[in-house]
Every structure is written in structure tokens, then in C-alpha cells.
């Protein structure tokens, strides 16, 4: 599903490597936490996984595709099989909740009745069916994050990457969001969640990946 082989990344005009010889393999249907302090390289690794950055060295495979020399068109195609949840939600205030969730499907063409139903079902699943006509700027942090999750999973992605999905919500809402992600994982989606919330990590029995100064360590190491 995902394979990093000695992957390093150095930002332009920076002498230090943001990622330093990272090797990692995530199996299909697995669930991992990615933890580490701020500036450790979590975001860089995430950007690499959703193909915003490409490695300066090493081999990177995403969804079983070698992506080191991938074209922009192929990046777009791969992203259609991924769900990305950001800490700052990245919702469009001009669109309603329903439209935000339907966005990944709308770029593929006219929505079928089945797809429209899927949007409604997902919104029902995240508990926001009653808010479909609202605009995101009228929602609370937890509601926004659930809309972001709904948008990320509406096209049934093979891989879900969530960067601090509970960072802007209270503890209760954080747990609720995590339960949604677990449920998604049970349906076969590979999930990788970045968080520095130790309490949250401890509440779930999933393997952890630690990243410190750009180097990756597994639980056992």
C-alpha cells in the first residue's frame, strides 16, 4: 500500500534534512498513529504521502505505485483514491456542507443518484445530516472536522491520511472523530493519523510510529 525506502527530504535553502532516511511499510487495511513533537517532520512526511512533496532521495511507493518521477496528472489520479483530513479542515465556505462533501465526486462529472445517496449516507454517518444546507463558517470546530472527514471518505478511498484530526476539537469530539476513523478502517481503508495527543493514542490499541528530527522509529524500537 505505502512503502518508503530510505526516503529523505531537504527543503530548498535548508541545510538540515526534514526527513532523514525514512523507511516504512504500511499494509493494506492497517491503522497507524504517527506521533512526534512539533517540527519533527510529521507534516513533511504527510505532504509526501499526499504527494505535495516528492523525495529528494530514496524510493517512495504510494498505493503500490512508484511516485518518484510522477506527473501532475498522475498525482491528481492517485489523490482520487486518497482521503486527506487537515487540522485546519480546509473546507470551502462558499459551498454548503453537502457541496463540500460532494466535491471529490463532482470533479469526476455529473453525480449519479447513487453518489448523491452516498453523500447523504456519509453525512448521516458523521451525524450532520441536519446541517447539509449550512455553510462551514456557521459550524463548530468538531462539526467542521466531521465534514472534512466525510469529504475525505465519500469516494471510498484506499488510504486515509489525517493530520491532527482532533487538534482543534474538545476531548469528547476528539474521541468521536477517532471512532469514525476506526469504523472506516474496519471497512478496509488504510488509515494513518498524525497526532501529538498522547492520551488519545493510549485510548486506542494501534501501532505507533514516532518521528523525531526527521528520523522514524517504530513502537518496538
Amino acid at each position: 500500500m505505502i512503502k518508503l525506502d530510505n526516503v529523505s527530504y531537504r527543503y530548498p535553502q535548508s541545510e538540515q534534512r526534514a526527513l532523514d532516511s525514512v523507511s516504512l511499510e504500511l499494509e493494506k487495511g492497517s491503522f497507524h498513529f504517527l506521533c512526534g513533537p512539533s517540527g519533527a517532520g510529521k507534516t513533511t512526511l504527510f505532504k509526501m504521502l499526499y504527494l505535495e512533496l516528492l523525495p529528494t532521495s530514496g524510493k517512495l511507493n504510494i498505493l503500490d505505485k512508484q511516485v518518484n518521477n510522477i506527473s501532475r496528472k498522475e498525482i491528481a489520479e492517485l489523490r482520487r483514491h486518497m482521503g486527506i483530513v487537515f487540522q485546519d479542515f480546509r473546507l470551502l465556505n462558499k459551498l454548503t456542507v453537502w457541496e463540500n462533501v460532494a466535491l471529490p465526486l463532482s470533479i469526476l462529472g455529473e453525480l449519479s443518484a447513487q453518489q448523491k445517496q452516498a453523500v447523504n449516507d456519509i453525512l448521516d454517518w458523521v451525524g450532520l445530516k441536519h446541517k447539509i444546507h449550512e455553510h462551514p463558517n456557521k459550524l463548530s470546530g468538531g462539526e467542521k472536522q466531521r465534514v472534512a472527514i466525510a469529504r475525505a471518505v465519500v469516494n471510498r478511498p484506499k488510504l486515509l491520511i489525517a493530520d491532527e484530526p482532533t487538534g482543534n476539537v474538545d476531548v469528547e469530539m476528539g474521541k468521536r472523530i477517532m471512532h469514525l476513523l476506526c469504523e472506516l478502517n474496519k471497512h478496509g481503508t488504510t488509515v494513518l493519523v498524525a497526532t501529538h495527543d498522547q492520551e488519545l493514542i493510549n485510548s486506542f490499541n494501534y501501532p505507533r510510529l514516532h518521528i523525531v528530527n526527521g528520523k522514524l522509529k517504530k513502537d518496538s524500537e
Binding site: 501532475r72 491528481a76 489520479e77 482520487r80 466535491l103 471529490p104 469526476l108
Partner: peptide, 8 residues
């Protein structure tokens, strides 16, 4: 955002 959801 459009790029993240897969728009070319």
C-alpha cells in the same frame, strides 16, 4: 483544496 480532492 480542489487539487487535494483529486482535480487535475
Amino acid at each position: 483544496i480542489l487539487q487535494f480532492v483529486g482535480a487535475s
